[in-house]
Amino acid sequence: MKLAEIIDMLDAELIVGTPDQLQIDIKTAFGADLMSDVLCDARSGCLLITGLTTPQGVRIAYALDIAGIVFCRGKRPQPQSIEIARELGIPLLRTQYIMFETCGRLFGEGIIGCIREICAGDSFREI
């Protein structure tokens, strides 16, 4: 699903993003507020859905090559986050929907989790 279509479906506002980035095809997603959780289990190319608006979310997105961030619950990213996202080229969206609704809608459109399942005691996994 293209980022532009996701914006429509979530009635989202595009805060940072170029016309090229609107054409990015999103296949997977990851929802979390805990940044250590994102660092551990998000995968490159996924769409991150979070309520945490600090610059660290954007920095993690860059570290992991995450395709973009959707801030849910109407949360507005901090000004510094916006600045860093522009610099690092990470698209930022904002939706009024809660994370439950956001994930539910995207899942219904065929987007899947960027990891399917966790096995206890998993050692290194390809990211």
């Binding site: 805990l34 940044m35 551990c40 945490l52 600090t54 660290q56 998993d122």
Partner: peptide, 18 residues
């Protein structure tokens, strides 16, 4: 509240290291 401190830091480092 910054989204860290869930006790995954060292475990993560270990996980991604050889």
């Amino acid at each position: 509240e910054m989204g860290f401190g869930a006790g995954m830091g060292l475990a993560n480092i270990k996980k991604f290291s050889d």
